[in-house]
Design a binder for these strands. Sequence first.
DNA 1: AGATATTATGAAACCACTTTCATAATTTTA
DNA 2: TAAAATTATGAAAGTGGTTTCATAATATCT
Lengths: 323, 323
Amino acid sequence: MDIISELAELAFASRLKRLSERLMKDVSLLYKKLNVDFESRWFSLLFALNRKSPMSITELASALGLTHTAINQLASEMIQKNLINSTKGKMDERQRLLSISKNGRRVASSLSPVWEEIRLETKRLIEESGFDLLSAIGKIENRLDERNMYERVWFRLKKSLPGKLEILEYRPAWKKCFFELNQEWLLENFEMEETDLKLLSDPNGKIIRTGGAIFFARIENRIVGTCALIKHRDGILELAKLAVTKKFRRNGIGKKLVQAVIDRAKSMNVESLYLQTSTVLEAANSLYYKYGFRKVKHNPFGEEMYERLTFAMKINLINIMKN
Amino acid sequence: MDIISELAELAFASRLKRLSERLMKDVSLLYKKLNVDFESRWFSLLFALNRKSPMSITELASALGLTHTAINQLASEMIQKNLINSTKGKMDERQRLLSISKNGRRVASSLSPVWEEIRLETKRLIEESGFDLLSAIGKIENRLDERNMYERVWFRLKKSLPGKLEILEYRPAWKKCFFELNQEWLLENFEMEETDLKLLSDPNGKIIRTGGAIFFARIENRIVGTCALIKHRDGILELAKLAVTKKFRRNGIGKKLVQAVIDRAKSMNVESLYLQTSTVLEAANSLYYKYGFRKVKHNPFGEEMYERLTFAMKINLINIMKN
DNA sequence: AGATATTATGAAACCACTTTCATAATTTTA
DNA sequence: TAAAATTATGAAAGTGGTTTCATAATATCT
């Protein structure tokens, strides 16, 4: 009786683990029986460094999907065994650079026939199962990147976002998020233009330091949306770069971000807040309309800013304050 | 850069592990955020006991694919949390029987909607991958049961069996192996007959205690073949129940077993050793012929012993000794 | 140019198990 | 029926990591 397989989806993770441990154990046994002084857990680090040396601990950690502490511990063992060397980083004195040693290269090349057979046998095993398991796992990993299991189940149970939504101001660490969130919706509808790239690559220089602001929506330590308030040289304020990542749309995150921008604009004692949009962006446009933005005939930013067809909208901040 | 997915088959186990840990971590987080005093690692034990109580530690260990020690440790925690109870076994005083407590049932039923959503979301996730991952994993597990990764790779590298082949005499622990190995080849060619069942179910009584012997072929702690020497009431010796498990055939294991039986027969100072076989069993027959067995007209065991068509062969042990 | 935030690393503690070793109870065999 | 083998369990240590916390070096902002 094998309750784990009987449980089907409920014990999916356990089955993956069980299979993984079984395979790993076999490989360890193989090294032992071949009388090779090599631990299976060293493989990926040795392989990575054989391909490219030197690499820093953090770089290796992210490449191998382990924590930096794990790499650190592995490295200690492997230095002992004279498989790799470590040197202090020249550019960055915090870094410790790991590289494969001469002996390491020798071991790697002497083990390569073993690795090749492991690869082939694994391939056969997977083929016998009749499914392209590697690509299936890849797809599942991608899906989980978009929205992890916790978020999925929570949403089903509560019909709401997991954890609370926070709207926060720009931090340097979120520079990349700003780029990627905007890249996501831009590529869905248009192409990335030079104008986008310039702005997205230097949010601090182009938006914050010129008197604007960038807001981020965070859920459970994950940045899921952003919106910017840009102050142009002529003093005109623009709401721009509203982006919510696909899997988190239709949860009112865009509203909160727009509200934050409007509030900030109000606090700046300016008459109007503008934005540029395209007819293609229906969801965004209806949100803008709800908040009181109306189409204006004269585009204050000029027509030639973006290649894509845009029109401008405007909201009267003073009037709103009177309400 | 994700070296693990780049490594493809070579890091298959690592990817399985990574995915498994990711899913497990998410479920733990879910319990935490739902503010439930429940650890994800308790799930399978609680589930098993909810389905059937009481169960012994060993029974649970094999059902859940964990070591008995793991069950023991889980049980301690869960008894603390009043999820399960433990009582001493009545039949077997060594046993500790675990059963779900009233509170355990309450917790299980209050968590069941959560588990249902986890199941559904996992199902969706697997379906999105486009492959029937559960059945793929099942198939791989079955393949590995037949011949594990270590044996596969070793065979490819050395073109020989992993580890050394040992021919050993009967031990009570191998009673089941004796049955299963013989069942395997019988079902390949014939059906199990009453005569087979009787003999295979009581090897000690029917073969050893009547003055015969049973040999087993062991590789790496795994019993892969067997062969018996039966002493009949009339003093006639029979070589019988030669079986080598499919994946290990064509490696000379059958030869070694037959040799062991012949050697034992010789040492018993008997003129001849007989056997019964069927024309269907070509591989075995050619092996018998090589060792000097020849067909005899008169079947000393009588024709009606087995339903399946058999004929008898004989080898002259005295002649061989003279050589 | 400070002040503030972030990054790279490592030590220590923890985690969820497994392995190893020991004991007691039971089953099989001789 | 005693001896030998096996089984059920548990304590203690080991494993291959992760988490947490602390420190030093850099990068960014004002």
